[in-house]
Computed example of a mutant assay.
Amino acid sequence: MTLSKKWILSLLLVVFVSLLAACGNQDETAGDKDNNNKSESQEEGAQDKSGKGGQAEMPKPDLKGIPDVVAEVNGEKIPKDEFETVYKGQFQQAAMQSQMTGKKVDQDKLKKQIAEGLVGQKLLIQEVNKRDYQASKEEIDKTLKDLAKQNQIKSTDEFLATLKKQGMDEKEVMSQVETQVKVDKLIASESGDIEPTKEELEKAYEQVKAQQKKMGGEGKVPSFDEVKPALKEQIKGQKKAKVSQKLVKNLRKDADVTVNL
């Protein structure tokens, strides 16, 4: 697989950026439910435009006019190349979703979300440095192993070799993984008890069943016990993301932030 330079660094804000998008989507949920039929018609229209009843042509990211310095956080600059790396990855996901729903990607909105995510990331890293968190070799190795597994790469050595081909040496990778471990510790210290309750798990399971039914799924829905581990991780991730958002919001109150988009 191909992993771009600064790829690990972008992982630090993926959840945060996704949360920003999710929060915006939640505000629009009611309207979306009322417009389900309209969305279906849009999707059909998009398919018809292809000329063969298939999916519309994949849109391309618009990166014209991106300033050399996208934002500045307490004197630290977020450069254009860092923004573009993250934007391209997030845009690809948004474009694939666009093909499924028939809704055009709002690139201006996505750019603002990415910029805010990068600002949030920078604030978290700055706070980590202030609090002087430490990351042990064991913690770094475990995180590296988890990253390799998430990307379906068999070993950390192979993972490092893949990143090296993309321009990241081992020292740079280790530095970024160490930062991720420290940020995880910061979020964990702010999260407190995030263990999902029985009620939360059951509610999430009902949502899974409803979603499969809505999508016309014909297969048998897995039992609650089968999906419980995955649901636990999902809920814990959501709670951590909300804590991250709250922490960033508080940090930003006293921060000197300029966004140039």
Rank of each mutant, 00 (worst) to 15 (best):
G45T: 02
P67D: 11
V227F: 07
K145V: 03
D68S: 15
E44V: 05
E206S: 05
Q47K: 11
G89F: 07
E202F: 07
A115G: 10
L247T: 02
L251T: 01
Y87M: 14
V128M: 03
P79R: 14
S39H: 08
E158F: 09
I187P: 00
L118P: 00
L261W: 05
K240N: 07
G54C: 03
I235Q: 02
G102N: 03
V208I: 13
V221W: 01
D48Q: 03
A22Y: 07
K240H: 03
G24N: 10
Q121G: 13
M174A: 14
K109T: 11
V86I: 10
A46R: 02
L124F: 06
E82R: 14
T156K: 10
K103C: 10
Q42S: 08
A115E: 05
I140M: 00
A255M: 04
E72F: 05
N36S: 13
D146M: 01
G65M: 11
G217W: 04
Q152C: 11
C23V: 11
L11F: 07
Q152E: 13
S18N: 10
L19Q: 01
L63R: 09
E158Q: 15
L124M: 05
V259A: 03
M58K: 09
Q90F: 15
A30F: 15
T179R: 00
S175H: 11
Q176A: 14
S244F: 00
F16S: 07
P229S: 05
I114Y: 07
S50L: 01
K112Q: 12
M174R: 12
N25C: 04
L247D: 00
K240L: 06
Y87L: 15
